[in-house]
Design a protein around this nucleic acid. Structure first.
Lengths: 264, 264
DNA sequence: GCTTGACCTTGACGCTGGGTCAACCCTCCA
DNA sequence: TGGAGGGTTGACCCAGCGTCAAGGTCAAGC
């Protein structure tokens, strides 16, 4: 007969595990010798190895018990199911390896590929990294809010970049981070924006539902205002000309201009 | 800003998990709005996704914290280590799939291949399945006791099977399970055994150390005695002729014969 | 016959990574 | 105004053992 440690060593488990299996009734308590030691036979070895094989496959011990005490047919079915789960787990781990590699490479796992491509395009246009980081954070927030429509939104932004005016706009905005507070070029920015807005209105693109809720639009706008001292001035200029907003543009009717107090 | 549930949904985790990460200090507690709700920004999204990527790879959360708060170099090293562990885990799972298939096919995972081959050879010689099962259980116990030398022991048994006398012996023993209690063929068994023992002694094989301890030899012998009513008779006949044991054979000097009390 | 060291016993607490209530508050919409 | 559907904290629960703690047993050597 075997002692508990021989049994455990042969089956490749710890003594503690064997005792655990006894407590939960997975492995029957064997006879004891006169000093109280457990004495095991070959049947216990076979059962323990079957337990380990299933447990190593990630099967919960309760399920292991069901399977080992079930008929041949149910057992075969269960094993097939376990094997399927095992294949899935292997695929998941391979997938995780891929994500890990991308994480190590510094890729932005927080963003869908479409957004990453868009940011790369901006980078290619010479937009400064500081500005791109601001954009990136905004996109992360947008993607988190409306994960289902992010690709459509990005597609529209890509179209906009086909317009040389938009390219010029980004080029100006990127540099603006270093402008002095009263730099006159901000007026040029406003001019370009107004041209773009007019064209967008004519194309019927303004006021279209983008699926982003109003509060969130306000939030992105205020984040923009906080990002640079020029931002508030730019919005003020545009508002004088009858435009409102940044993330989402609105035309303000002339009679409502300046009837509301300025934002705090 | 994001609420906890939007953050969680976007990163693919549960709200509960996010709060757990706050409690263990893995994700910093964000600011609250005036009603006490947590409000998250893009930085939190990025951090949470990094946490998940590492946690999905099986990294303990404490280690995740170390890695995320470490320098680029240490991070890269850590990720490499994790990837190695991931590869090892994938291999382990593939291995487990193999063992699972063998388990489902009814193979004896409790036995090394050499023993399985040996039992198959016995089966090929026409030995009855009942007898083979007894042999198998004995081999399981032996393999558990002396896993390192089991292959050598089996090699010796294979050699013995090259002797036609041994083959005849097994053929008789296999059928003996159904013999009446006083079947005279038991004497033929004893004759064959004696011939084999003499030859083994002449070859100097008796008394060689097989690495199996005495107590265990006694145990296997007594298991043999319990397995069949003929076993005791067979041992008695052999003992009259000056031989002792079964698992391990000893020559008993003539002057010591019958001087000890019979075993209980 | 005594010690030593390896092994055995039971029992209790600890750990990870959250799940699952419970009991209550906040916000939004009809 | 009230009800759904968020949010908040807190407390307990789970597997599958690891890890002491506090001893009893056994074989071996001196």
């Amino acid at each position: 007969m075997l002692t508990i440690s021989r049994l455990a060593a042969y089956a490749g488990v710890t003594v503690r595990a064997v005792r655990h299996y006894h407590r939960i009734g997975l492995l029957p308590e064997p006879a004891r010798d006169r000093s109280g030691y457990r004495t095991y036979d070959a049947v216990a070895v076979v059962r323990l190895i079957r337990i380990r094989t299933l447990a190593d496959a990630g099967v919960p011990l309760a399920r292991v018990q069901e399977l080992l005490d079930a008929g041949t047919k149910e057992f075969a079915g269960g094993v097939q199911e376990i094997d399927k789960a095992l294949r899935a787990e292997i695929r998941r781990l391979q997938d995780t390896r891929g994500r890990l590699a991308r994480l190590a490479a510094g890729e932005h796992l927080a963003l869908p590929q479409s957004v990453v491509d868009y940011l790369d395009r901006l980078r290619g246009l010479g937009v400064e990294e500081r500005y791109i980081e601001m954009e990136r954070d905004a996109w992360i927030m947008i993607a988190a809010q409306v994960p289902h429509s992010i690709d459509a939104v990005i597609a529209k932004k890509h179209e906009e970049l086909d317009d040389p005016d938009t390219v010029r706009l980004y080029s100006l905005l990127s540099g603006a981070l270093d402008w002095p507070a009263d730099d006159p070029r901000i007026v040029e920015v406003a001019d370009i924006m107004e041209r773009l807005m007019v064209r967008a209105m004519e194309a019927g693109e303004v006021g279209a539902d983008d699926g982003i809720d109003d509060q969130f639009v306000d939030l992105l706008d205020s984040a923009m205002v906080e990002s640079s001292p020029h931002a508030a001035r730019l919005l003020a200029i545009l508002e004088e000309r009858g435009w409102k907003g940044w993330t989402r543009i609105e035309r303000v009717p002339a009679d409502r201009l300046n009837t509301e107090p300025p934002p705090s």
